[in-house]
């Protein structure tokens, strides 16, 4: 009986599991994945696997993003990174280099050989008028994503 149940389970799973759709390019993580809103999913698994910063007894920050299929993956990680470190990213962009830019472009899937070119492209048209960190981060991400998709798509592949 156990065996039959097991076999039935395997069969059911194989029938209902749909292929994953990669919808990275169409996603605006701010609008669709809760970035900036700092949504925190409180169930046990999410708590275990979410990125939580603790100190010796005190919670500092917790952030979590929606786990919808379209919001998983490397570009959302880039968006989350930009949202958290936009202050440093802006400084490094106007200077022209820095470790936050390297990490950001890695998260965008860009080869090291095009990092400098992407930075120059963003730097050439950087909008520094936004008043809040959240607005700066969203604008920066959209500009970067647009530059990567339109000019560096071959060298910036999401794996």
């Amino acid at each position: 009986m156990k065996l039959a149940l097991l076999a039935a389970s395997v069969l059911t799973l194989s029938l209902v599991t749909a292929p994953t759709v990669n919808a990275q390019a169409k996603v605006n993580p701010w609008k669709q994945c809760g970035i900036g809103a700092m949504i925190f999913d409180d169930n046990g698994t999410a708590a275990a696997l979410s990125n939580i910063i603790w100190d010796l007894g005190t919670t500092a920050v917790s952030s979590n993003i929606s786990s919808q299929g379209s919001c998983e993956g490397i570009k959302v990680a880039a968006a989350e990174f930009i949202n958290s470190t936009i202050t440093n990213i802006e400084e490094e962009t106007v200077i022209g280099e820095g470790e936050h830019l390297t990490a950001m472009l890695n998260l965008m899937g860009c080869e090291a050989s095009v990092h400098q070119a992407v930075i120059e492209d963003v730097r050439a048209d950087l909008d520094l008028s936004h008043a809040t960190s959240a607005a700066k981060a969203e604008a920066y991400y959209l500009q970067l994503d647009n530059a990567v998709n339109s000019k560096f798509a071959a060298q910036c592949q999401v794996i």
Binding site: I53, W54, G57, T59, E99
Partner: peptide, 19 residues
């Protein structure tokens, strides 16, 4: 090289303190 310093994984231990 695709995992730069700021992307490296770290482990933290701390208490779960309510907000």
């Amino acid at each position: 090289e695709r995992r730069a310093l700021l992307q490296q994984q770290n482990i933290n231990f701390g208490a779960a303190v309510p907000a």
